[in-house]
Amino acid sequence: MIGGVAAIFIFMLAAFTGYEVICRVPVILHTPLMSGSNFIHGIVLVGAMVALGAATSTPQRVIGFVAVLLGAMNAVGGYAVTERMLKMFKSEKEQRSTKEPRG
């Protein structure tokens, strides 16, 4: 277990980190970034796996199964759409060098 005071420190520092990382982001990246942070809370999958793994009764197993299912949807879907959006972002130089068909 992580004790109460240690937990408060973890929460505080994590919140500060999240704030600092985002605070000067340009508008052009708002949508992918929202999608990217949406992917990151897909880590709930790990918690759901632990909860299902420790389930001992049928109701617990059913709810745990749903938790893992939803968590996996969050993580995999978040990754897929973020990656799709970000791989389209290219500078003019990059685009010329890859010689993709333009227009």
Binding site: F11, A14, T17, Y19, V21, I22, I40, I43
Partner: peptide, 9 residues
């Protein structure tokens, strides 16, 4: 991860 997203979001 949850709290980072909570603050960033």
């Amino acid at each position: 991860a949850g709290m980072v997203v909570g603050a960033a979001g």
